[in-house]
Structures are given as C-alpha cells and as structure tokens.
C-alpha cells in the first residue's frame, strides 16, 4: 500500500444509504476518503474531472456503485467507463438491493469487480464494508493505468 490516501467514490442517490456507508467506514476505522456523488452522470463527470466541480478530483481507488439512480443508472455507468481506457481498470463494487437483483445484474457481464447486497441489518452492512475495505485497501495493489 502506498502512502497516498485510499479514495472511494460512492455513487448513491439515496442519502440514507450514503450515510450508512460513511458511518460504516468511520466505525470500522477505515482510513479512506469518501467522495459522494448522486448519480451515474455525476460519477462520470467526477472521473473525467469536469469543471467546475470536479476539476481537481482525485482518482478513486475503488468505486461503490448503486444501481438505481436518476439520469444515468449503475448499468449505464459501467458501460460508459468500459469505453474509456483510463477508467476501465478502476475496480467497481456494485451495491444491490437483493440477492435476486445481484444475480440479474451479474448476468449482464458488465465487468463489476464485486457485489455487496445492502442488508437490512445495519451491523451486517458495517461488516460487509469492513471486509470490502480490507480486501481492496490492504490486499490488492492495483496498477495505476492513469499514469502509465
């Protein structure tokens, strides 16, 4: 792991769910910077560093992606970043509402790095985020395609 801060981009329109993710990171003492956007289009603007809001945006190490969002949903976002060579290597973990939805989405073969089903139990959700962070922050050292 480098000395640089680990940055997570969260694309989630539901404020309650975004709050849960934020809280989970905090309570698990995960030292990651969370950037929150409310739909796929804003997430793409963030990655493409579109002014005026995202001119200085930091490239995330991981993207947490909700599926049902306004304007551009999770599936459209995945298709869009696949077409951009500098973005397609950023791992994307998809947040799904149910196991059924998870199976359906994974069947599309959109190239998600993993899935988290949003649990009803807040404690479970906290655990899931903790496991996810451990895996992606501590174990996986990803190549930086942007600076190649």
């Amino acid at each position: 792991m480098s000395d640089q801060k680990f940055v997570i981009l969260l694309a989630e329109d539901e404020l309650a769910d975004a709050y849960l993710v934020k809280t989970a990171l905090k309570e698990n003492n995960i030292l990651a910077e969370l950037q929150h956007v409310v739909d796929g289009r804003e997430a793409l603007e963030y990655l493409q560093r579109k002014p005026p809001h995202y001119a200085q945006a930091v490239r995330p190490n991981l993207i947490l992606l909700d599926l049902n969002m306004p304007r551009m949903d999770g599936r459209e976002f995945l298709e869009a970043i696949k077409l951009e060579p500098t973005l397609r290597d950023i791992p994307v973990v998809v947040l799904t509402t149910s196991e059924v939805e998870r199976d359906v989405v994974s069947s599309y073969g959109l190239g998600a790095a993993g899935y988290i089903t949003k649990p009803i139990d807040v404690v479970d959700f906290m655990a899931a985020i903790r496991d996810l962070s451990e895996y992606w922050i501590d174990l996986v050292h990803l190549p930086d395609t942007e600076n190649k």
Binding site: D13, L15, V38, D39, N68, M69, P70, R71
Partner: peptide
C-alpha cells in the same frame, strides 16, 4: 435526451426525496 426517459417507470432525474419516478 431525458424527455422520453422520464416516462419509464421509476425513472427520475433528481434525487429529490419526494419523487417516486
């Protein structure tokens, strides 16, 4: 580009809490 999309079920253009799409 969104004028037709908004007629689909559960499609919203904002995250405003009151709209259901």
């Amino acid at each position: 580009q969104y004028r037709e999309r908004v007629f689909k079920v559960f499609e919203r253009l904002t995250t405003s809490g009151e709209g259901t799409g």
